[in-house]
Write a protein that binds this DNA or RNA. Sequence first.
DNA 1: GAGCACTGC
Length: 680
Amino acid sequence: MPHDPDPPPAKKFKPGSPFFPTNKKPGMLLPKKGNAPSTVDVQRKQLPIYQAKSQLIDQLRQLHNAVLIGETGSGKTTQIPQYLYEAGIGRQGIIAVTQPRRVAAISLAGRVAEEKRTQLGKLVGYTVRFEDVTSPETKLKFMTDGMLLREAIGDPLLLRYTVVILDEAHERTVHTDVLFGVVKCAQRKRKEQNKIPLKVIVMSATMDVDLFSQYFNKSPVLYLEGRQHPIQIYYTKQPQSDYLHAALVSIFQIHQEAPPSHDILVFMTGQEEIEALARTCRDIAKHLPETCGLMIVIPLYASLPPAQQLRVFQPAPKGCRKVILSTNIAETSITISGIKYVIDTGMVKAKRYNPDSGLEVLAVQRVSKAQAWQRAGRAGREASGSCYRLYTENEFDNLANMTVPEIQRCNLAGVMLQLLALGVPDVLNFDFMSKPSPESMRMAGEQLDLLGAVERKDDQVSLTPLGKKMACFPLEPRFAKTILISPDFSCTEEVLTIISLLSVDSVLYNPPARRDEVLAVRRKFISSEGDHVTLLNIYRAFKKVSGNREWCRENFVNSRNMGLVAEVRAQLRDICIKLGLKLESSLSELANVRRCLAHGMFANAAELQPDGTYVALDTHQTVAIHPSSVLFQAKPAYVVFNELLHTSRCYMRDLCLVDADWLQEAAPEYFRRKIHTAKS
DNA sequence: GAGCACTGC
């Protein structure tokens, strides 16, 4: 270990209160703990929730709304749908259980089908994007919240469903938040119209219970105890100025004192810092005395190739400790067993949205209390554990209670389009659980107006025929618009490819250590027309070799993401066919494609200034070409770009060369005073 | 001349 004059922070830790995630409240439903289960039925009966079964069924039978608080391991998500079904509640229709994530919906459906001893897709099924494993027999349906939202466009009263269970509600994704309003409205209207009632059950891990209960007509809150083990929380005595150093010292403090089978999970903010700390840890571990056990350091973040992500699940060799350095992916998406110690830096990298500038900023910031508890909980899944917080108890007390709901920190154009498609009459006064700012609502309305998606009649906003078609696509409004106008430029096939490429994580793989190789091999795809055309070239080359994996490796193309592009493209193409769009290809005439992009993305245009800088025409802010763009060294007079990202400067990413004429013809009124210098 | 957490339709 490097020489360090300060005592290690772990020595400076002081114990906080032991953490039991659910506050015991009067009237709560108490479980009995069981031993190792043998069969599926026995397992079901040994879940904490089983003891409360009949009481729960009685309550849920009578209630139209209920909020269920239950920790992980309580069995609420798998059992409650079955209890309802077995008790004959909601049998006239389907019981839907929504999840924020695809994998969760799929695996829960699998688990419940197994418990019901039926083939997946019969009584129990799931629906996620690209996969519908249901049949007319399906009564218990697991689905992503985004999927139910999309279904609601065709059926705003959700008449196929008798019960909707909104699970993981505490995560407050945009989709869940919009669904809150949709199910509440459907419930009220069905009552008014004397239709079969809709039961709404909100499930949450912890926190903001009052908000849920208030929103759903002061519905009763039921508490379920889980199988979480106690976790001892430690805080530092002094604030830490360098959380990375504090993490490093804490890791080795634990490593030297704890039994080797006890694994450590460290929550950090991003790839770069994780890889750097991993290297340091490995270096230090090499020079430890032999009395100290071995250590295996495993980085974990989303952009890691799948094979490397799987390493976190492999048990460490005997006598060796696993130290996992992870982003917040390990908070919810990836659950690792055997974690005894959690080290929480208290920091997270998150996107913030500024509605005034339309700018997204990715910044390191403090976690919320809810997030800190979620992180701590990862240490107590199989046995009791410890969580070392690299901040003081006072600092903890000053954290925000919960993370700001996503709906209050994102661009709302898509949400507003969807609400209008749902037939919500007064979007500005939609019954949100947490209202977005009027400013971001106004911005969204303006964006839709510019795209020609909405029209105003006597203060009422409604969708134009174009807007209705835009809402059919699972895309940002401007992307949907670009596809819809592509037949005018006879290039729908190319635009479908480009929009699909922009809708998934990057298909370009850029390992920094092999930078020169990457540049050399990518040269053959590069187009002076910009990044969109370059991406199109790569996709065409990929198709030519039928998606050959070897080709992907040689050309530094991410084959998983390329596969996803093909799926998205097929889905979008289907929608085009349903809408009767003419599918033409412009082949080598790529100016058509650029002209189409100019028409669809004109609000994201920038103009070269005499001094060599760029100005975004929409907001007049100074922007720059991101060095990763193929146009970085070029100085085109006009470009459209895919997004602005504020880091060291305000960068445009994914650029396409366009003519000023095209922008003017796309939105003459809008550009009348905006374009002033010479045309390109 | 930069460097980007995580989901989802």
